[in-house]
Design a protein around this nucleic acid. Structure first.
Length: 550
RNA sequence: GUCCCCGUAGCUCAGUGGACAGAGCAACCGCCUUCUAAGCGGUCGGUCGCAGGUUCGAAUCCUGCCGGGGACGCCA
């Protein structure tokens, strides 16, 4: 479409209908061709404001430019069927029905791959998300990050990128020791320490603690809290992995913070920064000169007690990820990590990497509310609702849709009681219903011995309703592309709703199975099959099931 | 105090400088002899937080203010 406009512009200039530039006027910024989807169907399938943008540099009235462009567009061999000029100078273009028919046939041929974008040179992208420390089961506060990260990965993969899903966790240090101490306390019938953990899962762990681990913890010279903590955290981590699997979220790589030290990545990163002159010692601590890159203060890498900070681990991890060959790193973080964004990106730059290759997605909070009362999530107090409990109440598909339909920057109030009550009205069921309805039609058709035509050719030119539906199907690839570019998925949910609406309208206006007219029935069956495919692919992109009956 | 995000219909939220500001839900009125009524049609509903500015054109960009959330550790 853009190519057609570009060709038309070039030909208009070539033929002298339009001036190449403004002549004496300074060559301003080059005019970029924008092709948009008008909200109003009366404005065609595509529109461009090119004539409006050219009016000033060319010093010509926009309508005159628009007419010249429309003239050339009318002769273009591309998919454009008709062109209108609308004041003050918009060009409104309509797709040619035959081109749409070919597009739908191609979509059917592509099957599950329809909507995915072929990318000859995929970028290797690492997406790190969730990364909750294994000191307790995932609670509903972790849900958004899990879904947003997973959705982002699905979208990037569909856009043809090579994505690695990564979970980063802490398997040593004070939190894990606290967990061990808490388990030991419960096992021994003692009071859990003040800064220990108290949830029901701690009691489960205490009960399940193997004698062998307990014996090892009690060996002379052993650190009981650390030994038990390590065992417990691995136990918890495995539970987290299982919970995530139930959400439809999987990871390719689990990286422990400890491994970054054992394998020397932190030392190597420190060395690299030191060579660059980006480190200095002060008050017994080792500092990174983050201010040299615009941060408002320098950051401690290694404390005066010799322990590395969390930031120390971060720089080791950065080096490790780049060393593994990733071209782009995405971190899905809670909005509370906002303060650490600058230092990590600065460290990447200081180590000689491209700062823009390190990107943080800050997820706004979800306020969980039950009956107007905000719920606090604290592993230490043991007051929290686990992810598994939430899903038992509202279901994965509904929860996924809820998260996918909102920009990740917007804060969400989530009333659990309301969500349960409204779950049957969740738009996700509306979209799934459209899929199930089509499945039912196809079953009925098969029972009647009718088969979809091999092509929708001939079904669209004289049928505005069918043509409108078909045009909508063909938008999926651009919806995917937009989502991948913006790192947002609400365009996909909106598209799914729109597509379902279009199908339901088609269902109302056009009878698919008509024994009296087998030819029309066959092409409509083909169109409806393509619609079902598009709905299924859209839902798959969101990790949501596409049921054949409801 | 400094920095980041948000403020759009009763509610939850879209809106990447353009054509009358949209969707879902809620509310109200209609529609099942006929491929699934988890559906369809219609109605109601907005000072786009406020005030300036830039632009042919601003919900969108800039400045200031108001309101909500978050961040500003040798915590993780």
């Amino acid at each position: 479409m853009r190519e057609s406009v570009e060709r038309a512009w070039a030909r208009a200039v070539e033929s002298g209908t339009l001036p190449a530039s403004a002549g004496a006027t300074a060559p301003a910024a080059p005019v970029e061709i924008e092709v948009s989807r008008p909200d109003n169907p009366a404005h065609g399938d595509f529109a461009t404001n090119l004539a409006l943008k050219l009016a000033r540099p060319l010093r010509r009235p926009p309508l005159e430019i628009a007419r010249a462009l429309a003239d050339e567009l009318g002769r273009d061999p591309g998919p454009i069927g008709s062109v209108d000029v609308a004041p003050p100078g918009f060009l409104n273009m309509r797709l040619d029905a035959a081109a749409v028919e070919q597009g739908v046939d191609a979509a059917c041929a592509a099957g599950p791959l329809f909507g995915r974008i072929a990318n000859p040179r995929p970028r290797r992208i690492n997406v790190e998300f969730v990364s909750a420390n294994p000191t307790g089961p995932l609670h509903i506060g972790n849900a958004r990050g899990a879904f947003v990260g997973d959705l982002l990965c699905r979208v990037l993969e569909a856009a043809g990128q090579a994505v690695t899903r990564e979970y980063y966790f802490n398997d040593f240090g004070s939190q894990v020791r606290q967990l061990g101490a808490s388990v030991l306390a419960v096992r021994g019938g003692r009071e859990v320490p003040d800064d220990g953990y108290r949830g029901a899962y701690v009691h489960d762990l205490a009960r399940e603690l193997p004698d062998e681990i307990r014996a090892r913890a009690l060996e002379p010279g052993a650190d009981p809290d650390a030994v038990v903590g390590r065992w417990a955290s691995e136990r918890v981590r495995a539970g987290i992995e299982a919970s995530l699997a139930r959400l439809g979220v999987r990871f390719d790589v689990w990286t422990s913070e400890g491994s970054l030290y054992r394998d020397g990545w932190v030392d190597r990163a420190v060395e690299r920064l030191r060579e660059g002159g980006w480190l200095y010692e002060q008050d017994g601590a080792l500092w990174f000169r983050s201010t040299a890159f615009g941060d408002d203060k320098d950051r401690v890498v290694r404390r005066s007690n010799g322990q590395f900070t969390y930031f120390g681990s971060d720089i080791g991890y950065l080096l490790q990820k780049f060393d593994r060959g990733f071209e782009h790193l995405i971190y899905v973080w809670g909005a509370d990590h906002h303060g650490t964004v600058a230092r990590v990106r600065n460290a990447a730059q200081a180590m000689g990497f491209d700062k823009d290759a390190v990107e943080m997605l800050l997820i706004a909070w979800v306020r969980f509310v039950r009956d107007g009362q905000e719920l606090s999530m604290s592993k230490r107090s043991g007051e929290f609702i686990t992810l598994d409990e939430l899903l038992a109440e509202i279901g994965v598909d509904a929860a996924r849709w809820f998260i996918a339909a909102r920009a990740h920057t917007s804060g969400i109030d989530f009333d659990i009681e309301l969500a349960k009550r409204q779950s049957s009205e969740n738009p996700v069921y509306y979209v799934q219903y459209a899929h199930a309805r089509i499945s039912s039609i196809l079953r009925k058709a098969a029972e009647a011995g009718m088969r979809p035509a091999d092509s929708v050719a001939g079904a669209l030119a004289d049928d505005e309703v069918a043509l409108g539906l078909a045009k909508l199907l063909l938008r999926l690839p651009e919806v995917v592309e937009d989502a991948a570019t913006l790192h947002e998925t609400h365009g996909i949910t909106a598209y799914g709703t729109e597509l379902a609406t279009a199908f339901h309208a088609f269902y109302r206006d056009r009878r698919v199975i008509d024994r009296a007219d087998p030819v029309t029935s066959a092409t409509r069956l083909a169109l409806v099959t393509a619609t079902r495919l598009t709905l299924a692919n859209t839902l798959a992109l969101l990790g949501i099931s596409a049921p054949d009956s409801m």
